Simulated scan of single mutants.
Amino acid sequence: MITRAQYSTVAVVPELAAGMAAQLLLLAGLGGFIGLGPAGWLTGTAFALVLGVLLASAMHRSRSCALGPADLVTFARAVLVGGVAALVIDRFGTAQPGPVFVALASVALALDAVDGRVARRTGTVSARGARFDMEVDAFLILMLSVQVALAHGWWVFAIGAMRYVFAAAAWALPWLRAALPASVARKTVAALQGIVLVVAGSGLLPDAAAVAVTAGALAALAWSFGRDIGWLWRRQSQSRRLNNAYNAPAMSRIATVDVMKPDH
């Protein structure tokens, strides 16, 4: 007899297999249209495998039986991101990414505005879906920052690495894991990163302009992360003060009793 937890993993296998097939078809299309070497094939295939394993694990933990409509949009976007990653690694060292790279990245960015809307309209908003969307976004920004860094300097890589550095710091500092309040500014800054990186890496702007807009995007991202870290620090400090204030009377009473004890 298949338990509910086991069924959730079994049920999603066809969807994961379809995603893997779509990734391989995209890689084959890239190989036939512009040429894709072993590094690109390996990168795209590895991305699809890791994505499938992580998604299956998340489905198992949440006891979900299928991907929702918004998840399928995010999954389609992830396939495009796999193509972007394959091109970045395959063309590593090439300053100009080419129109196919720009097209894939642009469609992936455009679909980022679709999955959230689909989730809200269908009533399928979930923490797992939000995390899935966030991880796909983060990896796309990482790949775009690598590509732009090849042309304008490795300081650009900080845009893609910042989120992962923050996540690593959160393992050592638990107070960084607290939930942040919703922020339009945070969402706007995050959305601008991908747009700026695609434009800067497309070769449509003069080098000086590309560097300027990328530096502006990095500054905005640093401000956004700094603001959030400051909020989390103040929240942690406030919680600590409240805990100390709550425990202080009890500690004072204990100290008073100890003082009043007769000597033996």
Score class of each variant (00 low, 15 high):
Arg4Phe: 04
Gly29Thr: 07
Arg241Leu: 12
Leu72Cys: 11
Asp133Ala: 06
Leu109Phe: 14
Pro181His: 01
Pro181Cys: 13
Phe139Lys: 03
Leu30Asn: 07
Val73Phe: 07
Leu176Phe: 02
Arg131His: 09
Ser202Thr: 05
Ala182Arg: 02
Leu204Ala: 15
Ala215Asn: 10
Ile34Pro: 00
Val100His: 00
Ser145Glu: 06
Arg234Phe: 12
Leu173Lys: 15
Ala28Asp: 08
Gly123Arg: 02
Arg235Cys: 13
Met251His: 09
Phe92Asn: 06
Thr94Gln: 14
Asp263Ile: 10
Val213Gln: 04
Arg91Glu: 10
Ala56Asp: 05
Leu24Ile: 14
Ala219Pro: 09
Tyr246Gly: 03
Thr3Asp: 14
Asp112Lys: 10
Ala103Asp: 01
Leu242Ile: 07
Asp263Ser: 09
Ala217Asp: 04
Leu87Arg: 04
Ala161Met: 12
Arg61Lys: 12
Ala200Met: 04
Val73Arg: 02
Val136Thr: 15
Phe47Thr: 01
Leu140Pro: 11
Ala39Met: 10
Ala70Arg: 03
Ala76Ser: 13
Gly226Glu: 03
Leu176Asp: 12
Arg91Asp: 14
Thr45Val: 15
Leu72Pro: 13
Ile254Met: 13
Gly116Ile: 12
Ile229Asn: 08
Gly153Glu: 05
Arg128Glu: 02
Ser145Asn: 05
Leu140Phe: 15
Ile34Ser: 04
Leu218Lys: 09
Gly201Pro: 00
Asp137Glu: 04
Gly29His: 12
Pro69Phe: 04
Leu150Ala: 06
Val213Trp: 06
Thr45Gln: 11
His60Arg: 09
Arg61Asn: 10
Ala39Thr: 04
Lys261Thr: 05
Val165Thr: 05
Phe47Tyr: 14
Ala191Ser: 13
Leu54His: 00
Ala212Arg: 08
Leu16Thr: 09
Leu24Glu: 10
Gly82Lys: 02
Ile141Phe: 10
Thr3Ile: 01
Ala167Thr: 06
Thr124Pro: 03
Gly37Asn: 03
Ala130Asn: 13
Met20Lys: 08
